[in-house]
Write a protein that binds this DNA or RNA. Structure first.
Lengths: 247, 247
DNA sequence: CGGACAGTTGAATGAATTCAACAATCGTGG
DNA sequence: CCACGATTGTTGAATTCATTCAACTGTCCG
């Protein structure tokens, strides 16, 4: 059975993630790096509210709306994207279970991007006001937040490298491997998975035309690197894929 | 007199920056958003150490070096950049007076990018250990840090939009206007300034060839949008420039 | 079943790159 | 202070990788 977690909360501690249990939402993984004590996690419990489910295509928030919640994805997936003034769109991230959304905008009163569910998606909405109270009570949680955001900055920088310097093949290979790693961390299969996003979304994210993504995937398939049936992806030769991703 | 600040520390409070005086380094602007009280700023003084000067081309830190300091630029400018495995480079940021360097990597033990002075540059090196102690004492400072990093994520996302979706002309126009805004905040002239980075650096940052940057600047000059003499830039028609940047 | 959407493939086009040659400027050492 | 080599910037011509346009197929879901 593909894309089914073995145990969603069994994330390997050496990866720097600790599972957090939330009374209101049931068990989920907030993916805060290690370093929280018992009282910290109870504090977290106290502010993590409003479990919510969004269906495919539904919007979590729009640009300019008052910034109210940080979102922790429990299951499913979400895309976030920003706009140019003339309406072009750039997808800035795909977010799967265990990831946080809304970290940009903490210094702002409004959301700077739009978030939309790619499939049926369950999230916990964390009130920013209560979150702010929390971090003032618990410096260690706040320091964990600094770390998470620091990691997000690094992730974005790698994306800048991809967008600025990589060829179409390198981009697609990098993308597949990045997804693979994230699934692996969550105990999904790193070699076989379903894409929840369209070719068009992938292309948008990678700075490519949708047709280019198709062609590259077709080439990868011809060369025996992957098999793909629409959104079902199978990474056959990860090593060669890694070589391509590296350039 | 171009590129001379009227008063370096007179930054308009409405911009969300408060000038911070550091006993060890003299007066400089750390550009922490408003919200610190007197005891916070004394705390900051106590950890901001090691005023340091780097000459053009000198390296502040390299990839893989132990992460020891966050840097606050006092004067001059610094570029930060990352590498692909095969040695390609992507410049991820140019940093001028009042800006912080090293915020990515807080969750890491090593620097993930390299930083190099573009000209004679004075910085304050802030020990990460002492910084961590500080933020545990002062939640308000830490929350300011969250805000700064949140802003950095947003800035990087705009760069992703630029790299993924904008034409060469839009990129260069956006770049010039971004520099202009940053100079303006620091009471430098927003219309006339010197670039401390080469065409090659600009192109690298914007995902363009150096020659393309030249050609676009030449076109802008032909069309009366700017005048440029090598690194001396004069924005003549900001409104049209803004229109181009928007697409 | 049918209409809409998503994905694929081919051919023509184009924006930016690469290659190349040259010009202007910088800076270092005599 | 000047000269000269190195660096940086500029411009033209050829090339290329990805895009755009177009036609078509497969799949999903009401």
């Amino acid at each position: 059975m593909i894309n089914q977690p073995i145990r969603l909360v069994s994330s390997n501690p050496t990866l720097g993630c600790t599972p957090i249990t939330c009374k209101d939402c049931g068990v989920y993984q907030l993916c805060l790096p290690m370093g929280l004590n018992q009282s910290d996690t109870s504090l977290l419990d106290s502010i993590v509210k409003r479990k919510q489910v969004y269906k495919r295509g539904e919007v979590l928030y729009r640009v300019g709306q008052p910034f109210e919640y940080i979102y922790a994805v429990r299951s499913g997936s979400v895309k976030t994207y920003i706009f140019t003034d003339d309406g072009r769109v750039q997808i800035t991230g795909f977010h799967i279970a265990g990831e946080l959304i809304g970290l940009n905008d903490i210094d702002s009163r409004v959301y700077s991007c739009e978030a939309r569910a790619l499939e049926t998606t369950s999230v916990c909405e964390v009130s920013i006001d209560r979150f702010q109270e929390l971090v003032e009570k618990s410096p260690s949680i706040q320091y964990q937040m600094l770390k998470i955001m620091s990691g997000e900055i690094r992730h974005n920088q790698e994306l800048m490298l991809l967008l600025g310097k990589k060829s179409a093949e390198e981009r697609v290979a990098t993308y597949l491997l990045s997804l693979s790693r994230r699934f692996e961390r969550r105990n999904y299969s790193p070699a076989q998975f379903n894409l929840s996003m369209s070719r068009s979304d992938i292309g948008n994210y990678l700075g490519l035309a949708e047709e280019t993504v198709c062609r590259v995937l077709a080439r990868f398939q011809d060369e025996g690197l992957i098999t793909s049936q629409r959104r079902q992806i199978n990474l056959v030769d990860m090593d060669r894929l890694k070589n391509i991703a590296r350039g």
